[in-house]
Nucleic acid binder design. Structure first.
Lengths: 135, 135
DNA sequence: CGGAATCCTATAGGATACTG
DNA sequence: CAGTATCCTATAGGATTCCG
């Protein structure tokens, strides 16, 4: 791998692409749940909480396409479909967890920075307009 | 910190929120550039490449609000504004870099998984419809 | 049960023009 | 130089309905 101070646009795109996977609303949560073992479709649907059926489908398809999860169909009636992390998916989960640890560890500092910023910058435009925490 | 098998919804939201920061189109790229030292507005604009003025402004405001970068105004004419990473920003950069390393290391495996998936699942609907790499 | 299809809204983000 | 303001489009994602 090239040293980090050398800028390779080709790598840059790769990283950006992966980050947008990780940054989408559901992928990581699904991966985290699958980290506790394989799950069926509706099982995930209940656990992830808030996810729509459509988005669960799309998210799982995306993860499957990237080789992060496997999809196993049991042609029974009613049908049964199991989703599970691949090795690749597990290694992503490991890496992403560190980001999660960072987030939790620094949560308070971030929240306080936001309060300072909001207090310093826009107190004059009335008490609405701050949809961030008001709405 | 609580063990990772205990599900704290409060933490879950925090992590999701941070991930969406990291997953947005520009934040990480800006942070990476600032990792090489403080930069002026138009300097960033040129380096980041592809970013619109509007998005650079919004991205920097967001990072500033979260306490990840500082904004220093020199009231000269013409004006000069420097942006720099805070300690918090540096530590985020460190963590995010590991995800970047993962992405680069596993890029080929992911791309091949995609080829397999695309080849196996939708070769019948014609040669269009695959906006992912065609469009 | 595990989806696919359709419709709709909200947000992200680009392009352009103006300003202190 | 370093923005702000406005307009516009594209995408993400929710709700609902239908299907094998």
């Amino acid at each position: 791998m090239s040293p980090s101070h050398i800028h390779v646009p080709h790598h840059c795109r790769t990283v950006t692409e992966i980050l947008s996977r990780v940054g989408d609303k559901w992928s990581v949560q699904v991966v985290v749940q699958l980290g506790n073992g394989p799950k069926r479709f509706n099982e995930l649907r209940r656990i992830v909480e808030g996810i729509s059926q459509r988005m669960l489908t799309l998210t799982l398809r995306g993860l499957e396409r990237d080789g992060l999860v496997t999809r196993t169909v049991y042609p029974t009636i009613p049908p049964r479909v199991d989703y599970a992390l691949t090795g690749l998916g597990c290694s992503l989960l490991k890496t992403v967890r560190e980001l999660g640890v960072w987030a939790i560890e620094n949560r308070d500092e971030i929240l306080e920075a936001r309060r300072r910023f909001d207090g310093a910058n826009l107190p004059e435009i009335g008490q609405d307009e701050r949809r961030s925490d008001a709405a």
